[in-house]
Amino acid sequence: MKHRENNGCRDDKYLHMKTKVALVTGGYTGEAEISFKSSDFVYSQLDKAKYDVYPVTIALDSWFHVSEQGIKIPINREDFSLTIDGHVVKFDVAFIILHGTPGEDGRLQGYFDMIGLPYTSCGALTSALTMNKGYTKSILADIPDLHVANSVLLFESHRRDAVSLITERLSLPYFVKPNAGGSSIGMSKVKEDAALQEALDKAFDAANTGRQVLVEEFVTGREFSQGIFRDSAGELVVLPATEVRTTREFFDFEAKYIPGLTEEITPADLTDEQKDRASRIIREIYIRLNCRGMVRVDFFLEAETDRFYFIEINTIPGQTPQSFIPQQVRAFGMKESDFYAELIEAALSSSTQ
Rank of each mutant, 00 (worst) to 15 (best):
K2D: 13
C122P: 02
P321I: 11
A207E: 12
F175W: 08
A124S: 12
A128K: 05
A124D: 05
A49G: 11
E312G: 11
Q109E: 04
D142T: 14
E223I: 12
K72Y: 04
G210T: 07
G26F: 02
L170M: 09
G86F: 10
S349G: 09
L165W: 06
R169F: 02
T167H: 03
M17S: 14
E264K: 10
N290M: 02
A194F: 00
L153R: 02
S350V: 10
A59G: 14
L154D: 01
A94H: 06
F253E: 03
S188A: 15
N314C: 06
G181F: 04
T352I: 15
C9F: 15
R10G: 13
A32M: 04
E168M: 07
E302H: 14
D338V: 09
T320L: 10
G26S: 06
I344W: 04
R160Q: 14
Q274H: 09
V93K: 05
T19V: 15
I281Q: 03
H99P: 12
E223P: 08
D142L: 05
E254W: 04
I344L: 14
R248H: 11
K20I: 15
L343Q: 00
I344D: 09
V163A: 12
K18I: 05
S171P: 00
D272Q: 06
A347I: 06
I265D: 03
S44F: 09
K191T: 12
F324H: 13
D142W: 02
T266F: 06
L196F: 09
K90C: 13
S171A: 09
Y111H: 07
H65R: 02
L214R: 05
A128C: 15
L170Q: 03
L60A: 11
E263N: 11
S279P: 07
V238H: 05
Q319Y: 14
D52N: 11
S337Y: 03
P178K: 04
D47P: 00
S151I: 03
G333Q: 03
S157C: 13
L82M: 04
L129K: 05
A241H: 05
Q212Y: 02
E243C: 13
L23H: 03
A22I: 07
R296H: 06
A141V: 12
Q69P: 06
I285M: 09
D105P: 08
D306M: 07
L348S: 11
